[in-house]
């Protein structure tokens, strides 16, 4: 009979085997077929942010906010991380909170998709569902009030006003884009939620080359189905937002984003979420106006969390 000897797997670099080390350095994918009508000298590329461990771009700011709070003592004395979210930021906090042993409480509108709520529960987050009629601003007000009432219980992460949000993109996403395009990026297109992505990447690209064009993407109406995006004029302005940074804002209808989301799945094999469809629609609009250029955008998440939205995929 053979004896089985248990051995401890020896990792040459234990830090590299952590969840945290898997954040960022996402692939930059070239759109191949939805771009067929563009000039041959124009490329459209997208950062595939669902490659992050919790499945969205929000791993970047969530991890940076957690690290900053650990460094400056915000999470000392067993305080819970508290924030409002429409889903992805909550999933990112809950993921790294679980991995680091930090308890997480999230305020989210009750009309967040059932998939999202189920994922948050699976990760052990405490969830406070807020009035769906008040939207993401309603969740924000609830979180703010909870933080004011129990400052000893909560560290209020406040993704809308926390500079660690945009700095994650300034130090991560921005340099990755310059490296992956060998410095040839000419246009950067990103949807606005907290605005962290656009502001962080935008500031980095501006410093790298002042002529790089920055394009913000917004819903065309205050009432919309573009999960993760905000209609800034009618919403509470994020403190980290800088309205003067971008050169241009493109408004995308929910219908146009749905249509592009389906095309990305069927023509590119990219099963992405609705805000990726909105970003692609805007990036293609920019690309169509060019004779040459390298247009880079962000695809924040994959399509799984939107499967319950039957009309999206029909």
């Amino acid at each position: 009979m053979q004896t089985v000897v248990e051995t401890q797997l020896q990792l040459s670099n234990p830090a590299a085997a952590s969840l945290e080390a898997a954040v960022g350095n996402t692939p930059l994918l070239r759109l191949q077929r939805v771009t067929s009508r563009l000039s041959a000298k124009v490329q459209v590329l997208a950062k595939a942010e669902w490659f992050n461990p919790s499945g969205s771009v929000k791993d970047r700011p969530a991890l940076n906010i957690l690290r900053a709070a650990i460094c400056d003592g915000g999470l000392a004395q067993g305080r819970r991380l508290l924030d409002s979210t429409s889903g992805n930021m909550g999933i990112a906090y809950a993921t790294f909170g679980a991995a680091m042993g930090i308890p997480v409480t999230l305020a989210l509108p009750a009309n967040a998709s059932p998939e999202r709520i189920a994922i948050l529960r699976a990760l052990g987050a405490e969830i406070v569902l807020t009035d769906p009629s008040e939207g993401s601003d309603g969740a924000l007000r609830v979180a703010r009030r909870m933080a004011q009432e129990q400052p000893e219980r909560y560290f209020y992460a406040n993704q809308y006003d926390n500079p660690a949000n945009w700095q994650a993109h300034y130090f991560g996403t921005g340099p990755e884009i310059v490296g992956q395009t060998q410095g040839k990026v000419t246009h950067f297109v990103a949807g606005l939620g907290t605005s962290g992505t656009l502001i962080g990447v935008g500031r980095y690209l501006r410093q790298y080359h002042p002529s790089i064009q920055l394009i913000a993407v917004q819903p065309d109406s205050p009432f919309h189905g573009l999960e993760g995006l905000k209609h800034i004029p009618s919403a509470i302005q994020p403190g980290i937002f800088d309205p003067d940074l971008s050169d241009r804002t493109i408004a995308v209808s929910t219908e146009a984003a749905y249509e592009m989301t389906r095309r990305l799945a069927r023509e590119e094999g990219l099963f992405v979420g609705i805000s990726s469809g909105a970003a692609a629609a805007a990036a293609l609009q920019v690309a169509q106006e060019l004779d040459e250029g390298v247009v880079v955008t962000i695809f924040p998440d994959a399509g799984y969390k939107y499967l319950s939205d039957k009309e999206l995929w029909e």
Binding site: A110, N111, S113, I117, H224
Partner: peptide
């Protein structure tokens, strides 16, 4: 009656 956007098809009112 509640009128709300489907943040992604949400069905838990």
């Amino acid at each position: 009656l509640l009128l709300i956007p489907s943040i992604a098809g949400g069905s838990e009112a």
